[in-house]
Design a protein around this nucleic acid. Sequence first.
DNA 1: TTACAAATCGTAATGATTACTTTATAATAA
DNA 2: TTATTATAAAGTAATCATTACGATTTGTAA
Lengths: 137, 137
Amino acid sequence: MAAELKKYKMKLRDHGLKVTEKRMTMIELFLNEDRYLSAKEVQEQLHKTYPSLSYDTIYRNLYTLKEIEVLENTNFEGEMQFKISCSDHHHHHFICEECGNTKVIHYCPVDTWQNELDDVEITNHKVELYGLCAGCK
Amino acid sequence: MAAELKKYKMKLRDHGLKVTEKRMTMIELFLNEDRYLSAKEVQEQLHKTYPSLSYDTIYRNLYTLKEIEVLENTNFEGEMQFKISCSDHHHHHFICEECGNTKVIHYCPVDTWQNELDDVEITNHKVELYGLCAGCK
DNA sequence: TTACAAATCGTAATGATTACTTTATAATAA
DNA sequence: TTATTATAAAGTAATCATTACGATTTGTAA
């Protein structure tokens, strides 16, 4: 097993979760595909290895892995999509609408916005850029 | 009829669309509720006046009104929601997670982001702030 | 190896959204 | 004002993502 997977095994154990084949295969899939995947895409990919994998398992694990910050998610094109969590500091993403690949954006002016709207309390925010990546332009 | 509604009547005509009772009532609803409404909320409100109003009509008109920029929409809480288009210049929204009311945000650093990711072409972006408004804090 | 809680399966239910055929209505011209 | 026509709406069914749940299997710790 690749060294990187051990890190994820430990993360599951640290949270009192079981290390199951399905979960590890799911994590491997996300490591190989560094972009947002829908539940359906996950099902299609994992169906090859586990023909009986149910949506119940897929959705439960997607959200479990999100809880422990292995994955991050966003509502993209009308459905919830997930990708491997790529950075340990606050960031947002650019998503290529052609190929789906993502790039991390570091600049985030949430403080400026909090300042502009000083009578509200911002508890959460979403920033997402869409367009064409260098390769797809 | 309120003077404001005439503006919307003309906008429909300018786009070659018919001015129907249902459409005008829908626009009135959005003018009265200055926040994001789901298709279901629109159905519940308009059901009082039009008990037979179908979802087909609701969805078609929501997207028609969005096309001509009478409404704007966003995917919020897992469903597509619509609100009256409130400003004629580029802007984003703060949405109160308690009462649903929105505030316009004027600052948008899309140029800064384009600069940070200078090898991609940003064609679209989403910025949304969530939290508690002054009243709900 | 056993026992138990957690995870998965298989399948059904739900809820938002879309599709489609028939019917009604707004706009236009005579 | 009326007839004509294209657009809009009704009524209903289908689709698709997501959730739910009882029965079964599996990972883990003793």
